[in-house]
């Protein structure tokens, strides 16, 4: 299968990319790694008239410490994040979540900005990011603004990003040696999660339990008031609206959310807080 026809432009700066979005409006789509967009275009579920390729814009790929935060460029590819020493030391949940995305070839292409902007409720990195908190930095015709992580993902393929804005950076708090865990449940290792849970410093986020990635607020509140892990985890699916597909019906997804939350919290609280 092949994409429908389109025009291709390759801006050299974020400003030029924004200008292209302004010029073409609805018809245009950014392409970064292309590993969410091209599959959709091949199935003709997306047919943009203009593709704006931002993957060559310099200086969008970096991980650096800035005060209490770690700033990560939107162009950072999943494999770069996975291997990054700064990220491993400062926000270890992120490189681990990056290592769980798809397969090596996918991680060689996919970008952080792409997965953030795409807003698939089953995506790994947004789940980890949501548990971390922090913000998404976007740039539009009027310059840059910062959107809190908790306000960014609104629904299936729906974000707080305006049509003419580009995600340029993600900023998350440094968690250092604090306990964390990322529990991804799949049938095959390279699959998207049926359900996934990210836990760090008492914050818990869930993949694939609603139209977008969501925080397990009832669990977080229970933890805050000192409830046991078992009790808090038992509330993980509260307020979620899991969908049904061939892998899982809502009842099973709810069960998985509770189970994986319990396991994640146990791991995160464990001494040394190792990954999986």
């Amino acid at each position: 299968m092949i994409p429908g026809a389109f025009e291709y432009v390759r801006p050299g700066t974020v400003e030029e990319a924004v200008a292209a979005l302004v010029e073409h409006g609805d018809d245009a789509k950014l392409i970064a790694g292309g590993h969410s967009l091209l599959p959709l275009m091949k199935l003709r579920l997306a047919m943009p008239a203009v593709l704006v390729d931002i993957s060559r814009i310099p200086d969008l790929s970096y991980v650096r410490v800035e005060g209490d935060e770690v700033a990560i460029g939107a162009g950072t590819r999943h494999f770069e994040l996975e291997k990054d020493d700064v990220a491993r030391a400062e926000v270890p949940i992120l490189p681990y979540a990056a290592s769980q995305v798809g397969d090596p070839q996918v991680r060689h292409r996919g970008t952080l900005g792409g997965t953030v902007a795409h807003s698939d409720p089953a995506s790994d990195l947004p789940t980890a990011l949501l548990a971390l908190g922090g913000s998404v930095v976007v740039q539009g015709p009027g310059g840059r603004r910062s959107i809190p992580m908790t306000e960014f993902w609104l629904g299936f393929y729906e974000t707080a990003l305006a049509e003419d804005e580009v995600v340029v950076e993600v900023r998350v708090p440094r968690t250092g040696s604090a306990g964390w865990a990322y529990e991804k449940f799949t049938r095959r290792a390279n699959d998207w999660p049926i359900v996934a849970v990210a836990a760090v410093e008492g914050r818990v986020a869930l993949a694939n339990m609603a139209g977008a990635v969501v925080r397990a607020t009832a669990t977080e509140e229970a933890l805050a008031r000192g409830a046991s892990i078992a009790e808090a985890a038992g509330l993980a699916d509260e307020g979620t609206s899991p969908s049904s597909d061939m892998h899982a019906d809502p009842e099973y997804r709810r069960h998985l959310a509770r189970l994986l939350t319990r396991r994640a919290l146990e791991k995160a609280s464990g001494a040394g807080a190792a990954a999986a």
Binding site: Y8, I31, G34, L38, K42, S55, F79, V106, H108, R109
Partner: peptide
Amino acid sequence: CTVIVDGLSVKSCTVLAAQ
């Protein structure tokens, strides 16, 4: 369809020639 592009394995069915 895996090939090596600039030292990295990629799936060439999901990369535009333009990219």
